[in-house]
Amino acid sequence: MRAIFFDETDAQAVVARLRADGFEAALERERLAGEDDDEDHPWAVVSDAPAFMLEVLVDTHDGWLDEGDDDAGEHTTPLAPLDLPTAPRTVKRPDLG
């Protein structure tokens, strides 16, 4: 799960708190689509801490929780490929035949 912060100090405080509580936590720069200025990119805290704990820290340090599906493919088994037709279907109208 990821927590996003615009202030680096807040993000570092969250990482320190999570590590002090025995969880893994890493700080990385979050690149937003369409954002040109590198200084405006927010900070992402990636952790294995429970969601409720991250929610409290996000509320305390003015950030938000990213519960997106970005990492979902890493933890799930891939789906089998679809069985698609190789040619268009022919539709016969009984009233013309």
Score class of each variant (00 low, 15 high):
Ala11Phe: 08
Arg93Glu: 13
Asp36Phe: 08
His41Trp: 13
Gly34Ser: 00
Ala44Ser: 11
Pro88Ala: 13
Trp43Met: 14
Arg29Val: 15
Leu84Asp: 07
Asp10Phe: 12
Gly34Asn: 08
Asp70Met: 12
Leu79Val: 06
Glu35Phe: 10
Asp10Asn: 15
Ala33Cys: 01
Glu8Ile: 03
Thr86Ser: 11
Val14Gln: 05
Pro81Asn: 06
Ala49Ile: 10
Leu54Thr: 06
Ser47Gln: 03
Val56Tyr: 10
Thr76Lys: 08
Asp95Met: 00
Ala25Gly: 09
Leu96Ala: 12
Glu28Ala: 15
Asp69Trp: 03
Asp38Ile: 08
Thr86Lys: 06
Glu74Val: 00
Glu24Met: 01
Asp59Cys: 02
Leu32Glu: 13
Val58Pro: 05
Lys92Trp: 13
Leu27Tyr: 09
Asp71Lys: 06
Leu96Ser: 11
Ala11Pro: 00
Leu27Ile: 01
Gly73Trp: 14
Met53Asn: 07
Thr9Gly: 14
Met1His: 13
Leu82Thr: 08
Ile4Leu: 10
Asp95Val: 01
His41Val: 03
Leu57Lys: 05
Gly73Leu: 12
Asp48Cys: 08
Glu55Ala: 08
Arg89Lys: 02
Thr86Ile: 01
Val45Ala: 12
Asp48Ser: 08
Glu24Gly: 04
Phe6Asn: 15
Ala20Ser: 12
Ala3Met: 01
Ala11Ser: 01
Asp71Ser: 03
Pro50Gln: 13
Glu35Met: 13
Glu35Ile: 10
Glu55Gln: 12
Ala20Lys: 13
Leu82Ser: 05
Val15Trp: 00
Arg29Thr: 15
Thr60Phe: 05
Val15Leu: 03
Lys92Val: 05
Leu82Glu: 10
Val14Arg: 08
Ala80Pro: 03
Ala72Cys: 01
Ala87Met: 05
Trp43Gln: 15
Val14Thr: 04
Arg29Trp: 09
Glu39Lys: 04
Ala13Asn: 10
Ala16Gln: 11
Pro50Val: 10
Pro94Arg: 11
Pro88Gly: 06
Arg93Tyr: 13
Asp95Gly: 02
Leu82Gly: 01
Leu79Trp: 08
Ala20Thr: 07
